[in-house]
Design a protein around this nucleic acid. Sequence first.
RNA 1: GGGCAGGUUCCAGAGUGGCCAAAUGGGGCGGACUGUAAAUCCGCUGUCUUUCGACUUCACAGGUUCGAAUCCUGUCCUGCCCA
Length: 428
Amino acid sequence: MNLISELRWRGMIQDIKPGTEEQLQKEMTTAYIGFDPTADSLHVGNLVPIMLLVHLQRAGHKPLALVGGATGMVGDPSFKAEERKMLDEATLLHNQQSIKAQLERFLDFDQAKPNYAEMVNNYDWFKGISFLSFIRDVGKHITVNYMMAKDSVKKRLEGDSGMSFTEFSYQMIQGYDFYHLYNTMNCKMQMGGSDQWGNIVTGTELVRRIGGGEAYAFTCPLIKKKDGTKFGKSESGNIWLDPAKTTPYQFYQFWLNADDEDAESYIRIFTFIDEPAVNSLIAEHRQDQSKRVLQKRLAQEVTTFIHGEAEYEAALKTTESLFSKNAGVDVLKTMSEEQLLQTLTGVDVKEVPAAALTEQKDVVTFLAEAGIFPSKGEARKLIQGGGMSMNGQKITAVDQKITEESLLNGKNILFQKGKKNYYLVRFI
RNA sequence: GGGCAGGUUCCAGAGUGGCCAAAUGGGGCGGACUGUAAAUCCGCUGUCUUUCGACUUCACAGGUUCGAAUCCUGUCCUGCCCA
C-alpha cells in the first residue's frame, strides 16, 4: 500500500512537499520524527507521530525516532504563547531513556530487517558543535528574514511577551537535525505535526542550500476535539502511555469517552483498521450513536496496541462491572476481596489502616485522610454538591460516619467521585 | 542608553485609597438531563475551616495611611518607539 494514499484517506496529511510521494515510491526511504523529552513517558498526544512511524515502517520504509535531547534544552516556540521552562540535563537524560524504552515496543528494531527502526538523539551531535562554528557554518545559509517569516515566529513577534534568542534559534537547531540525518543516515524525509511545518521546511532548506540535496516532508493535522479543547487530557491530567502513570483501565476509559464526532476521525488515525471496515463501522455508528460502536472499538484497538490484549480484557471487565446497568455495585457486593480487586483492576486503590473503622470518622475527614481529596474543604464541597457516592449510593450528609457497616464485603469500600472516578479503599 | 506603555487570581481582562479574595468572559470541576455523548440549564472555582472566621494573594522590596491591587520610592521583567 502506498504510504501517502493510505495516510490520506485516514486524514493524516496536512502539508506535503512536492515530490514526496514519488520519492516514497521510488525507493526505501528513511524518514524521521522528533519527540520532545519533556516528561519521562510519552502520552496520547505523541500517539500520532508514533502511528506515522509505524505506518511508514509497514509500508517498507525505514523509521528514525529522534529524541530531542538538544532541542529539549531549547524549547520549541511554535505557536506557544510563552517560553517554556527549561529542564536540567539530568532530567532530560532520564526522560530520553524512558521514551526510548517505550518506542521500542511499537517499532521493529530488528536489525535483520532492511528497514529496521533506529533511535537517535540530537544531543549526540550537538554536544560537539561550538556556537561559533554553528553560526558560521549553518547560520550563514539562512537569513533572519526567512526565519521571521514563519507563522510560528510571527505569532510570537506580534504577541506581547516577546521571544528570546534561544527560542528563535530553535528552528535552526531542528533544521540542522534534518541536515545532519540527511548526511549521516541518508534520511530524506521528515514528518511531524502541522505545527512543525515551519521548522521542517527550514530543515529541507538547509539540506538544499548547504548540501545541494533534495529532502521531503509532510505533516499531519493536529488532533482537535470537536469542542476545541486540547486533545489528550482528562480531568486528572495527561493520558500517559506508561501504565504506572495511567492505568490501562483509565487509558481505555479515555478512548471510550471520545465524542461521537471525534470518534469518526480517531478510528482512522489511531487504529490500523482498513478503509472498508472503518466505513462500515462508521455507518453502523451513525445508525445508533448511543451504542457507541466506534468508541468501543477505538478503545479496544488502542488499548490493545499500547498495553496488550490481556490488559484490554481487564480494562473491559472493570468498565463493565462499574458502569453496566444490570450488574453494577450489587454484583461487587457478592465478591470476595480477591475477585473484587481483580475485577476492578486499574481503579485507584487507597489503603487505609483498619483502625480508622473503629474511630467512627465522618466521611469528610475519612476521604481527606484516605487521600481521595487533598483537604476536608474540598471533600465537603463535592459532597454538598452531590458529587460523591459510596458503594453506589449517593452520600447525602457530610457528617455521615464511616463504620464497619459501610464495608462492601467486609473489607473494602468503593467510592465514586464525580461521574467517572472510582476509588477502592482497602483496610489494612 | 533615551522616551512611552505595562506587569492583577488557571487564561483573557476589569478594578485606580475602605463596599476587594477582587467584576465579566473562557477554562476546569460538580449536579440535572442523557448514551460514562453533545447541546442546554444550575452550582462551585485563593488556602484552611462544620458556621463564625482565620490566613496568604494583585511583579519584588521598602514607605505613606486608621486602612493600599489602588498613593510614594527603589528594583526586576516585558512590549513599542528612538539611538
